[in-house]
């Protein structure tokens, strides 16, 4: 299983806002274990999906230079359940991005129904020993996979593009793999 808790970005405005889709499928194994015979997405994994949406928004704003970690969930209120067949839309707004960290506020909607409201704080870790855990290229790959560059815009409204230095590394790795 891969640790992806969103399926695709549908909006990505650098440093400001992102929207992501999470489709819930009965094929997801964890749904069968959370409440046996009552499959629903665990609220903790909704928070993780929103953290991935917001974390990539913060990462991209810093050109993937900071080690962004979920530090705190000041608020998480759930209003209903989300079950297989439901599509959740996570909308994340940046409250602040500062030197030490960032805070986002988010909603999760199921159609027109408010499913959850969440606030998340991210910290920027400065310990260089953690570098191996925070490979900037892996975040860039995740952004590509989730379609952020297909729908994204930079702060000035121009199309979102990856930082050239990272893109070169990723493209070189892909070329090696194809050989």
């Amino acid at each position: 299983m891969r640790w992806y808790w969103i399926d695709r970005f549908i909006e990505f405005e650098s440093g400001r806002r992102a929207k992501a889709v999470k489709n819930i499928s009965l094929a997801e194994e964890h749904l069968h274990d959370h409440f046996p015979n009552y499959p629903m997405i665990p609220n903790s994994l909704v928070i993780e999906g929103i953290a991935q949406t917001g974390g990539l928004l913060v990462c991209e704003h810093n050109e993937f230079a900071e080690k962004v970690v979920l530090a705190k969930v000041p608020k998480a209120t759930f209003y209903c359940e989300a079950i297989p067949g439901d599509t959740l839309i996570y909308t994340v707004d940046v409250e602040y991005i500062k030197e030490d960290g960032a805070r986002i506020s988010a909603t999760s909607y199921k159609g027109d129904t408010l499913h959850a409201e969440v606030e998340i704080m991210f910290a920027h870790l400065s310990d260089p020993r953690l570098g191996a855990l925070f490979d900037p290229e892996s975040f860039l790959r995740m952004m590509c996979l989730l379609g952020a560059f297909d729908v994204g815009h930079a702060a000035d409204g121009s199309p979102l593009v990856p930082p050239p230095r990272l893109l070169q590394t990723v493209e070189a790795e892909e070329a090696d793999w194809q050989e």
Partner: peptide
């Protein structure tokens, strides 16, 4: 410690 970052954010706003 992380709360101080959050508190500072909220006071600024």
């Amino acid at each position: 410690s992380i709360d101080f970052l959050d508190i500072v954010f909220r006071l600024e706003k």
